[in-house]
């Protein structure tokens, strides 16, 4: 992960924001008469497309690949979780927001873990 606070805060904000947006779209779109697997795959795809669109303005402020790839992961996972959940049982707006926000946080933390794993000791970059 980047050690500069501007980018750390930016990473968290954009990932939670896109995950919340996708969660809200899933909440409004998916209902219990949908097939659970269809809802999951469709909302994963919708989440990835929405993330790609919103990554463009977010990227102007916070970076290119470092913004685009985690946002797409957040959008995809949020769509998967909330889309599947909303197809299984009626959920409240608060539940959708909670699940979306949590998914966004988990996604960026997963990316930070993976990044540290791949970069290894090279992460000790002098700023």
């Amino acid at each position: 992960m980047d050690q500069r606070i501007y980018f750390v805060v930016g990473d968290v904000l954009v990932n939670v924001a896109i995950a919340l947006l996708v969660a809200l779209v899933s909440y409004w779109l998916v209902s219990t008469n949908w097939n659970m697997l269809f809802a999951m795959w469709l909302m994963m795809f919708v989440g990835m497309v929405l993330a790609m669109l919103f990554a463009l303005p977010a990227g102007i402020l916070f970076g290119a690949m470092e913004v685009m790839l985690p946002m797409k992961l957040s959008g995809m996972l949020s769509g998967m979780v909330v889309g599947m959940w909303a197809a299984m049982q009626p959920i409240t707006l608060a539940q959708a927001i909670g699940a979306g926000g949590t998914t966004g946080l988990i996604s960026i933390v997963l990316v930070w873990f993976l990044n540290t794993r791949i970069r290894g000791i090279q992460a000790m970059v002098k700023y």
Binding site: A58, I60, G63, Y127
Partner: peptide
């Protein structure tokens, strides 16, 4: 410059300088 000029370049600056 609008698309690549702030976020990406600031993020990559230390590595490019090196």
């Amino acid at each position: 410059d609008l698309m690549a000029g702030k976020g990406a370049e600031e993020r990559w600056e230390p590595f490019k300088r090196e």
